[in-house]
């Protein structure tokens, strides 16, 4: 019987404390915390549309401004993952407008830098990192600066410069080695042009365009022969017309083509190298 009484007492006590914990405790805190947990979970699970909705709900309802930086940054990240880069920048800038610590400000600035790289606004990215450089004096922060500037160079396909920046962090940095490797695999556009200048078509063949190389050689040889033949037979006008309209057109085109093929090949190498890094590099990346 005593046990039943004790149990009843405990039951009533527990019921009341639980109910009052809900109603009289801190409902705003509990409600907002639940929304925040939900938003964080959505964000972690890459459900960015819904995550943005919940973070915006928090921004609207949460009176405590100190949490707003996190919400704004996560909204910015979500938009960035969804490729809505301009919206992403707008939210990062809203976060920067709040009173925040320097370290957080720097972190957000690098996020902005990464978005600027993705949208190809390299001038703005350079200006931003130059501003950060003025404020940065100590070792680890400088490493971050070199690191992101290296990525900036990668996005601009300046592999040699990128390798130099990563090398400043530590000699033989893995990204430095990678960038150097990519740089070494690029063709020299000038060399390819000179090759085609000396032997028509050779530059194209060197850059892997065999058919174009053979065709260039054939056309230039054909019109060259015709031009010389015309001059040899004293048909000066024929020679000038063939030489100017056909031979020189093919010879000049052959040099330009060789340069264009080399540039295209370099672009292809750079694009693939960047894609490979973005998919396989496990460190921090834009």
């Amino acid at each position: 019987m005593n046990k039943i009484l004790v149990a009843s007492y405990l039951l009533a006590h527990l019921l009341l404390t639980n109910i009052f914990a809900g109603e009289g405790g801190s409902p705003e805190f509990t409600g907002l915390k639940l929304i925040e947990n939900s938003a964080d979970s959505l964000f972690r699970n890459a459900k960015y549309y819904d995550a943005v909705t919940e973070y915006k709900r928090l921004l609207f309802f949460d009176p405590d401004k100190k949490n707003h930086v996190k919400y704004l940054v996560n909204i910015g990240d979500s938009y960035s993952f969804g490729k809505f880069y301009h919206k992403s920048l707008a939210y990062y800038n809203k976060a920067l407008d709040l009173q925040i610590e320097t370290s957080i400000e720097t972190d957000i600035s690098y996020r902005i830098y990464a978005v600027l790289l993705k949208i190809g606004d390299f001038t703005a990215a350079e200006n931003l990192i130059a501003d950060l450089e003025k404020k940065t004096v100590y070792g680890p922060a400088m490493d971050s600066l070199y690191y992101w500037r290296g990525w900036g160079n990668i996005y601009q396909y300046k592999w040699f410069e990128a390798a130099k920046e990563f090398n400043k962090i530590s000699p033989g940095h893995e990204l430095s080695r990678y960038c150097r490797g990519v740089n070494e695999s690029l063709l020299s556009v000038e060399l390819v042009k000179i090759m085609s200048f000396i032997i028509p078509g050779s530059g194209q063949i060197y850059s892997g365009n065999y058919f174009s190389g053979i065709a260039s050689f054939g056309w230039t040889a054909l019109w060259g022969y015709n031009m010389i033949d015309a001059f040899a037979e004293n048909r000066i006008f024929d020679g000038l017309v063939i030489g100017d309209l056909l031979f020189l057109r093919f010879y000049r085109g052959n040099i330009q083509n060789a340069g264009r093929f080399a540039e295209e090949k370099n672009l292809n190498i750079s694009e693939n190298a960047l894609l490979y890094l973005l998919s396989n590099y496990e460190g921090i990346k834009p």
């Binding site: 039943i4 639980n18 109910i19 809900g22 409902p27 409600g31 907002l32 639940l34 929304i35 309802f61």
Partner: peptide, 29 residues
């Protein structure tokens, strides 16, 4: 092992219900 199962069952049920009620009453957003 000191009380009968039925009593324990009802207590658990009520406590769970009250906890649940406490949560939903807080979510007014």
């Amino acid at each position: 092992g000191s009380a009968d199962l039925a009593l324990r069952f009802w207590m658990l049920l009520l406590i769970s219900f009250s906890s649940y009620y406490a949560q939903i009453s807080a979510e007014d957003y």
